[in-house]
Amino acid sequence: MAKIAAIVVTDKQSVGGGAPIFIAKDQAEQEKLAFSLEKILDVAAHDLKNGMIILVDHSAES
């Protein structure tokens, strides 16, 4: 199963839980943060279409 490596949001209230959470000021910063994290962590960024971008490690095994 793939693993969520990080979550990038603009709205602090919308998340909580086990994965590292990064909070951006606005959408532009969110996009930049997600881009950097994608390259640094070697994981894929996915847009949940509710203002949240999650970074998922598809190579992680179970």
Binding site: E31, I53, L55
Partner: peptide
Amino acid sequence: MNVGLTDD
């Protein structure tokens, strides 16, 4: 698939 970044 879902492609999150506008750059990608």
